[in-house]
Amino acid sequence: MGFPISAGLLDSMVLATVNAEDTYGYEITQNIRRAVDVSESTLYPVLRRLQKSDLLETYDREFMGRNRRYYHVTSKGELALEQYRKEWCDHKVKVDSILMNEVENNEKN
C-alpha cells in the first residue's frame, strides 16, 4: 500500500470489524489485511489501547480445548465508531474531490 495508515484509521477499522461480529485477534487481523498490510503485532497495541479506553471489552470462550479471547464493542465504542465513520466520510469526499478532480457543485455554492 502506497498510503500510510494512521492510528485513528486503524482504531476505526478494528472497531468496525469487531462491531460487525464479536471476534478474536487472528480473525481481526485477517479481516483488516484485506485492505491494508498489517501484522498481528501491529494490531496488539491497538487492541490493547481500545480495551484500556473502554471502547472494546473482552471475554474468553473455549475453542478446541483452549481459550480464545473474543472482543466486543462497548456502547462507548459504538459511539466512537459512529464518530469515526462520519469523519471518514467527510475525509473521503474531500480527498476524492482533489484526487479525482471531482467538481463539487454543492461546495462551490
Binding site: 478474536y24 485477534g25 487472528y26 480473525e27 498481528e40 503485532s41 496488539y44 487492541l47 481459550n67 480464545r68
Partner: peptide
C-alpha cells in the same frame, strides 16, 4: 495469551511462517 492464540489460530504447521510475519 494474545501471541499464543495467534500462533494456534494460524495453524501449528505454519509456526515459522507466522513468526516471520509478526516481524
Amino acid at each position: 495469551s494474545y501471541y499464543d492464540e495467534i500462533f494456534l489460530d494460524a495453524g501449528i504447521e505454519n509456526e515459522e511462517e507466522t513468526a516471520e510475519k509478526l516481524g
